[in-house]
Write a protein that binds this DNA or RNA. Structure first.
Lengths: 181, 181
DNA sequence: CCTTGCTATGCAACTAATTGCATAGCATCA
DNA sequence: TGATGCTATGCAATTAGTTGCATAGCAAGG
């Protein structure tokens, strides 16, 4: 149970509607916590019932009403309470690793197909790294004075960059290993 | 739906009981796909119904019978079929990143507590890295002749090592950033 | 004009995963 | 001799997450 907390952080950084949150989960927050819009709407409802967020109905011309959410004092307390709980070990789900070990039980054609898939996967992550680097240059220029929130956002982004670089190096190792089999 | 496939790979590498599988998921496979024993027993039942695995009942003195599972031809086909599907983008769930960004909305005391938590988290991952390195020296000595399966297991382990090293470096960056706030 | 895509919200059905509990006897150590 | 912990399996209840679908109108491009 932590989508609640990811939403609280996102809404504290910037209030917004369910739709806007879903956008952010696709772009920024979703780098380290994925969620679909269906899930976000459901959880927002629950959070509203619990008094963690409050919504302001905003009428719009020719479009459905927008419900702009912001975090209540009680929601902020809930976040602070959670922040002080011990960090849980993460549940790892690395599909590609399963596939690589599985390749031992496939034939030549299967391994060729896997090389193609890994190559495509690598290209995706190279694109992700480039998006991160562009975002870093845009949002965190070297000489800028950053506040606490921005410094924390930056260190998380540096984590994403480090992860993608590590992954690309490892994928090269994987491709090399597969080709030499 | 991919726990099935992780189990197929593990049973192809070495047949065994549900209990043994749960052990392996704690140790080896669990590095990249976590699962509890309850989940493993349930999925094994389903896989047996689907004809992907077959079980041999083994009576034991003073203990419950053990059901040793092995993969059938049909299970192997199912794995090979899955291996040729495109790789899905992984669902990222990085709790620590949410906490770090959340720290912007906590006070001095909260940030001090977070530094302590990150330090503990770092120690855990340092221990994990050391276990990987010991395992690597034990299972993949430099001059050994490795078969296909072992080479693939090794490249996956190298991925785990690269990940842990990257993580430790980043956690140092995080600690430094938190201390300078 | 037609198709695609965006804003904006949500229900329903299903699948997956977690948490808590239960059984049962053996081994080891204090 | 009592407590802890391991082997070995599993059910039940709950929570979380995914997939498919629905509504509704506007904007932009071919």
């Amino acid at each position: 149970m932590a989508l609640e907390h990811a939403i609280l952080v996102s809404l504290l950084e910037q209030p917004g509607s369910g739709y806007e949150l879903a956008r952010r989960f696709e772009r920024s927050i979703g780098r380290f916590w994925t969620a679909t819009h269906q899930q976000i709407y459901r959880v927002l409802k629950r959070m509203e019932t619990d008094g963690w967020v409050s919504a302001e109905q905003i009428g719009q011309d020719g479009r459905p009403d927008k419900r702009a959410y912001s975090v209540t004092a009680s929601g902020r307390d809930a976040l602070v309470g959670w922040l002080r709980e011990p960090v849980q070990p993460e549940a790892v789900r690395h599909e590609l690793a399963v596939r690589i070990r599985g390749a031992a039980f496939d034939d030549e054609a299967g391994r060729t197909a896997l090389i193609a898939e890994v190559t495509r996967y690598r290209a995706d992550h190279e694109a992700t790294l480039n998006r991160y680097l562009i975002g870093e240059r845009r949002d965190f220029p070297e000489d800028a004075a950053l506040d606490t929130g921005q410094r924390l956002q930056h260190v998380v982004l540096r984590g994403g960059i480090a992860y993608e670089r590590m992954l690309l190096d490892w994928l090269d190792d994987v491709l090399d290993t597969l080709r030499r089999l």
